[in-house]
Design a protein around this nucleic acid. Sequence first.
DNA 1: CATGAATGAGGTTTCATTCAT
DNA 2: GATGAATGAAACCTCATTCAT
Lengths: 220, 220, 220, 220
Amino acid sequence: MAGDKATKEKLLESAKREFLEKGYMKASLRTICKNAGVTTGALYFFFQGKGDLLRELVEEPLKGLTALIRQHFAEEMERGIGVVSLETDRQDIDAAKEVVRFLYRHYDVCLLLLTKSQGSEYENVVSRFADYGEEHYRMLTAEAARGCGVPALDGYLVHWMSYMQINAFVHLLIHEPDVEKALGYIEQVVVYLVSGWNGLLQTGGAVQDPADDREKRRKP
Amino acid sequence: MAGDKATKEKLLESAKREFLEKGYMKASLRTICKNAGVTTGALYFFFQGKGDLLRELVEEPLKGLTALIRQHFAEEMERGIGVVSLETDRQDIDAAKEVVRFLYRHYDVCLLLLTKSQGSEYENVVSRFADYGEEHYRMLTAEAARGCGVPALDGYLVHWMSYMQINAFVHLLIHEPDVEKALGYIEQVVVYLVSGWNGLLQTGGAVQDPADDREKRRKP
Amino acid sequence: MAGDKATKEKLLESAKREFLEKGYMKASLRTICKNAGVTTGALYFFFQGKGDLLRELVEEPLKGLTALIRQHFAEEMERGIGVVSLETDRQDIDAAKEVVRFLYRHYDVCLLLLTKSQGSEYENVVSRFADYGEEHYRMLTAEAARGCGVPALDGYLVHWMSYMQINAFVHLLIHEPDVEKALGYIEQVVVYLVSGWNGLLQTGGAVQDPADDREKRRKP
Amino acid sequence: MAGDKATKEKLLESAKREFLEKGYMKASLRTICKNAGVTTGALYFFFQGKGDLLRELVEEPLKGLTALIRQHFAEEMERGIGVVSLETDRQDIDAAKEVVRFLYRHYDVCLLLLTKSQGSEYENVVSRFADYGEEHYRMLTAEAARGCGVPALDGYLVHWMSYMQINAFVHLLIHEPDVEKALGYIEQVVVYLVSGWNGLLQTGGAVQDPADDREKRRKP
DNA sequence: CATGAATGAGGTTTCATTCAT
DNA sequence: GATGAATGAAACCTCATTCAT
């Protein structure tokens, strides 16, 4: 009657707005229904409850994103480590851009998932992503350590770097609404992250001793 | 009688526990009062409400932390940029360590402030810190750009880097309860961040063109 | 297609299960429909509502049971009172057994009707049955009083005894799922009830005075 | 403010009325509060919820009643079985009367507990009482069987008799609001129950064979 | 200082029922 | 015959807050 073919869609839309605006916890089902022009009962016809509402909004993009992320980590493993050319830099950047494009294709939902899901079953999504990275990077550093004689990085640092990477995407999503700009920034972010990683590996994670590095550098 | 002069202190203690356990939003004043062995009325004698309770818990350390952070940013400004020696690296690390020590000296409260304050007036504290950094670094890069001919970094990147730095502390606080270990890690974190920064500045934030950088590098 | 002519039957079956499991009040039409593999609308095509659903399930057996009970009470009236032989005992027992057989022939529905109908129009069925008994027994005791000089029993006691009789069947149905065993028990139950009745009549409902009853008896 | 010293009492009173009128399940907390002239929050200040409200109403009388019942069963055990005189009859009757007095001293609450508690944690109270009886009577019949050569009664019958006894009280409470009358009736009820019990024991629970019992008896 | 009572608005959820298709 | 969407009222409950004492 009211709005033709929509209701469920209207509810999802309204929920998305409310979740984004107030965050999962403070979001009110009453308000969601009111803004959708529908009664509470209707919501419960289509969804099991608040959690389910978020789930339907987020589950599919989440699956896509997870797959994308794991796949790229896996590819990195295959490319292996060791001597790295500009070629590989490009590959890293392209991988990152693919993730960015995915995030912006599902802009609202990803923002919601990554920044407004506190209190829901998804509140640890970012950490979970970081954990995926940790798995891979742990293997990578171990191998690097064996192959090149550099000491393996501490587990904490590996976890932190993974977390930084994921957070880079989250930060982008929050602060830069424009995809094209985001794609531009991500290139430099990757440069930063790669430089940081290399910096760490060169020193074996230890602060450099004067003899190693006498040349001048700029600093932050 | 049993606690004598305690009441307010007991409330603060109980509130800290509850906030840390459930987060600001899900924390219940009832529970806080019950665990403090006191009634709701008492709470409202000492505090204006939920927000005020958090405020009294957090305000002082927050001021200290803010001062510390701004001061260090300011010092960096004074040291200026340009040619950087190992000496300056050490200064950066020491500054970071001072922050770490402060954070762990007020472990609970800082954890609360930085990770459990969603829904309160402090929910954007981390962003605010990042903004302080942004201010400073923006000036820094501008100067660097003028002095050295490198193009100035985009504002977004500057903000992101500030954010990464703050987040490094937050991550540490969450995942490493032991100060000594934390102090060890922060050194390497600084190395990483400095390397990243340098990497970015060298390329002017643009992805390197093949001729510039032919030598082999390790990569993540 | 899968069930063809079934739908209504499936609904009745599903409703029976749900009512038995949760009781009339707590039973959910949603659940009933879901378990019947049918939508709410379908239910309302065949039935007027929750009450009607129970009615269709229960009405016919209820009529049968009512008829059976009234008939037996009537027969007792015809047999009259007064001197009673073993023969009459047998008749009582056979009557009771017939009721038991009926109850177990419609086991589920009778259980439902007699023990799970709270909140429906049938919640007083047991009382109503007891009332039938009361009618008859009132006449019976009145006659006995006139004929034998014993004082008539108080109306309350008559009602209570009727109620006990009905309840004996209900108790059986609840606690003994096997007809054969039930038929065995009912014999003894009748013995008990007849003994009780005789005991009451002998004393005129008054507690016996010592002279009347000096012999030793076992007691509960 | 509204009504001086009462609120909790008013809530309990209002709840009692509502529970008695509609039964536990259909009773509405809203209505209870409205009739008490109080808001929902007030109810939850004094009680944990619907269940707790009933509990506070019922728990104490329940304890008293349980104690009374168990004590009387225990006394019966001590008096033992075997030859029983009128004396013991009187004891039985007095015990029953004590129970009746207790029930009527807490008339409303007992009625509520015994007949309107479906859906609450007390819905099986009557069965639980019957179980107490069963325990005792099982021992009693076993002893009687050993001592007097009569076959022990089937467990089912014992349970049923216990249940009948309890139900006798419940029936009284429902149908006879006047204590004095109730006390009068209970005497006859005991006579009935004792007669029934004796009748059963004499025949060993089997239907009598003609030779055993030729004398005339009245019958129901 | 502190209590304990009370408010009132809001939360999520469930239900029997209706009706256009 | 049957579907699936939608209603609307009511359910229980929790919360931060207030205030007379």
